[in-house]
Design a protein around this nucleic acid. Sequence first.
DNA 1: CTTATGACTATGA
DNA 2: TTCATAGCCATAA
Length: 105
Amino acid sequence: MEREGFFERTYELVRQIPRGRVASYGQIAAMLGQPRKARFVGFAMHASPGQAAGVPCHRVVFKDGSLAAGYAFGGPSVQRQLLEEEGVVFLPDGRVDMSTCRWEA
DNA sequence: CTTATGACTATGA
DNA sequence: TTCATAGCCATAA
């Protein structure tokens, strides 16, 4: 099914995100060739096997650097901690510095 | 066919 | 700058 292919592609792409780098849903969706499916990218993260399986969904954030509080795997606090561990810079607002940590294909 | 929902994004107040 | 609303695409009822 194409849907699984989309999911698999999303996982693989997220898996390629280097350490200390983050990407937005729309950015990943655009890399998949469908920038309008940013929501499905997020859904793929929701259905993702988890970072332990090789899918660092915590490196996927909003276009403005915000996190999906409420649906995160353990709360945005944990996500922020993980990202900081990898070297991602956080702004005083509690958002990721996309201007610097944005992943480049 | 119309309506509702969703880890989104862009625009306007 | 922050908050609210509309638009977008795919799937389900």
